[in-house]
């Protein structure tokens, strides 16, 4: 399964902010850490803000803050803000969908979608942060360490 760029950015941003919910982090800091465009990140943060997952704070020390419940918000909640998880939902309009072969293919793809949905809906932000903490550090030659890049973890 490949996530769209905006979805990946959103997940990175939420994880970054939720790792230290008491602090405010600027979009520039997040963009630098994940090597992503600030403009693209700003659009993603607006969507996350409208969904009530992050909050923008103004002022000199302004930035963004996670405002969801890390033990309740799941990856599916974030992914669905940016893309359709059920890829076969509109498949009935595709060429050949009405044939026996098309319906058989639909059944197989629906099984894959079911599994993806169940996986994404069962992994909370808190669980993701735990998985992040368990990752072995990457070698300095290959980039910043997942654990070492952020002193907050």
């Amino acid at each position: 399964m490949k996530l769209q760029t905006a979805t990946r950015i959103a997940i990175h941003a939420v994880l970054e902010l939720a790792a230290d919910p008491g602090s405010q982090i600027s979009a520039a800091q997040i963009a630098e850490r994940y090597d992503i465009s600030v403009n693209h990140l700003a659009k993603v943060l607006r969507t996350l803000g409208r969904a009530g997952l992050v909050e923008a704070l103004r002022g000199v020390r302004g930035g963004y803050r996670f405002r969801g419940n890390a033990r309740r918000v799941t990856l599916l909640d974030i992914v669905q803000l940016f893309e359709e998880v059920d890829s076969v939902k509109g498949a009935s309009r595709e060429p050949g969908a009405h044939t026996a072969e098309g319906r058989a293919l639909h059944a197989v793809l629906a099984e894959i979608d079911d599994t993806a949905r169940a996986t994404l809906s069962s992994i909370t932000i808190a669980t993701m942060l735990m998985l992040v903490a368990r990752q072995p550090p990457t070698s300095p030659a290959r980039g910043r360490s997942a654990a070492g890049a952020s002193p907050r973890r």
């Binding site: 799941t74 809906s121 992994i123 909370t124 735990m130």
Partner: peptide, 8 residues
């Protein structure tokens, strides 16, 4: 499922 996921 979320519970078991949270257990790793």
């Amino acid at each position: 499922m979320s519970f078991f996921r949270s257990m790793g």
